[in-house]
Amino acid sequence: MPQEIYTAIELSAIGIVTVFIILYLITLSGKLLISFANRFLYPLPDETKTDIAPPAISSTTVAAITASVEVITQGKGRIVSIEKLKES
């Protein structure tokens, strides 16, 4: 039993350190990819882009709508366009 506990402690130390290292590397690779894309990759053509510019919507509203859609559709939903409804 003491040997098994010792192994469990050792394994826990290895496990938690590995998880930290992997997630740290992921954040690092994410930063590198962002820098790489900013520097070398032109924005891909937006499939949802239309010729007519929509009326300006504040970034706060867009963020709120995006967050709501993500939560409600569990990340499946995509926003194709955001339009202000005309008041009748």
Partner: peptide, 20 residues
Amino acid sequence: VQIQNLKAVKILFPIALCIL
């Protein structure tokens, strides 16, 4: 650092993450 090309990063990210 601000993300200027989120779509490209989102495509590259899962590939990099998988390899890593």
